[in-house]
């Protein structure tokens, strides 16, 4: 563990609510291996007992403690203080793409409503419950998602253009991919992808992939193959006809 060159750090934390807010500086003593969430907890128990922060596992497994640290969307439980420049204040803001409730806590309820639009897993008729690890591996990548919503937060379709009504966002393309590519699933979600989740709006800038704390290749492994499925289903009449006739096994 590297020695910490500073005894203290300054956190510049957004304090406020939906209407109004400002940053407030807090001095925090450093200990080896400290993460930003530890520092926030220190502020809570010593200086600002009502500082609102969401967290659960503090081990990178639940995806609750997302925030923007020095302008970068991160899990605060996995962001080490010694990885940040400590000679200047560390800014901590709530995720920008979601409405602020208070301080670092945002209203992420929209995500839960998007999830309801996605048809659940449905096994093919007469399926035998055997699978190859190889086929499972491909899908397990998507199922690693801890729903931290950092990918949603940085997606410019949501963050800058506010298209929450028409667009599902990377998280729910990953979710859909995990169902579509399930080796035994028997439903097509191409229509939902096109009409309800607006996958066409994604122009593959890969911002989502860059921030994913689980290193899911969101763009390459989930979004692009799903876009191809939509193209096949809606824009390739021959393939569509063949599919219909054979009620083909899914890839």
């Amino acid at each position: 563990m590297a020695e910490v060159p500073f005894a203290e750090a300054t956190l510049q934390i957004f304090r406020g609510n939906r209407e109004d807010g400002k940053t407030v500086d807090y001095r925090v003593p450093l200990v080896p291996g400290m993460v930003v969430l530890d520092a926030l907890h220190w502020v809570q128990s010593h200086q600002a007992p009502d500082l609102a922060v969401r967290w659960n596992c503090k081990a990178g497994k639940c995806g609750s403690c997302s925030a923007e640290v020095n302008g970068r969307p991160r899990l605060t439980c996995k962001t080490r203080m010694d990885s940040l420049p400590l000679d200047q204040p560390i800014t901590i803001f709530p995720m920008k793409a979601f409405p602020v409730i208070k301080d670092l806590v945002t209203d992420v309820s929209w995500n839960f409503s998007v999830n309801r639009k996605i048809p659940p897993f449905q096994p093919r008729a007469g399926v035998v419950w055997k699978m190859d690890q190889r086929d499972v591996d491909r899908v397990q990548e998507f199922r690693k998602c801890i729903e931290c919503f950092l990918c949603q937060n940085v997606c410019h379709v949501l963050r800058d253009h506010g298209k929450q009504e028409q667009f599902g966002g990377p998280r729910f393309f990953v979710r859909t991919a995990s169902l579509e590519m399930h080796p035994l699933d028997g439903v097509s979600r191409a229509h939902v992808l096109k009409e309800e989740l607006g996958i066409g709006l994604c122009n593959i800038t890969k911002c989502c992939t860059e921030v994913c704390p689980e290193d899911i290749h969101i763009t390459d492994n989930a979004i692009i193959p799903l876009k191809e499925r939509v193209v096949d289903e809606f824009y390739d009449p021959l393939l569509r006809l063949v599919r219909k006739i054979r009620s083909a096994k899914k890839i």
């Binding site: 809570q44 007992p49 009502d50 609102a52 208070k102 301080d103 806590v105």
Partner: peptide, 12 residues
Amino acid sequence: HVEGSRLFNPGW
């Protein structure tokens, strides 16, 4: 004793 309001107040 608790400071602040009832809006998302971890102390409370």
